Simulated assay, not measured.
Amino acid sequence: MGFRLVGVAAAMAIAVGTSGCAQLLGGGDKAVPTFDLTAPSDFKAPRSSTAQLVVAAPSALQVLDTERIVVEPKPGQVAYLEKAQWSDRLPALFQARLIQSFENGSRGRAVGRAGDAITPDYTLLTDIRTFGIQAFDGSPEAVVEVYARIVGSASGRIVAGRLFTARVAAAGTAGPDATQALDTASDKIFVEIVDWASGRY
Rank of each mutant, 00 (worst) to 15 (best):
S48L: 03
G20L: 12
L90C: 02
L5M: 14
R47T: 11
V32G: 04
A142K: 10
D177S: 11
A96Y: 03
Q85Y: 08
Q95I: 00
G20Q: 14
A45R: 15
A13Q: 06
G152S: 14
F131Y: 12
I118N: 01
L25K: 04
D137G: 04
A170M: 06
V194D: 10
A57K: 14
G115M: 07
S153W: 04
A178G: 04
E192T: 02
A92I: 07
Y80R: 05
L163Q: 11
E67C: 11
G28T: 05
P75A: 05
G28Y: 13
R200Y: 08
P46S: 08
P176F: 05
R109E: 14
A96V: 09
V144W: 12
V63A: 15
P33N: 15
P120K: 02
L93S: 13
R167W: 01
N104E: 06
R162S: 14
L53D: 00
R97G: 01
A135W: 05
F131D: 01
T184I: 01
G105E: 14
V151C: 02
T130R: 09
R47D: 08
P176S: 09
D42Y: 03
A79L: 05
V159W: 01
E103H: 05
Q52N: 08
G175M: 07
K74Q: 13
D183A: 03
E145H: 07
Q77M: 12
V143S: 13
A181Q: 13
L53M: 06
Y201D: 08
G175H: 05
L24W: 10
R4V: 14
Y147M: 09
D187K: 07
V6H: 02
G26I: 09
T34G: 07
V16Y: 10
N104R: 02
Q23L: 06
I133K: 08
A57G: 05
M12W: 00
S49D: 15
Y80Q: 07
P91R: 06
R4A: 15
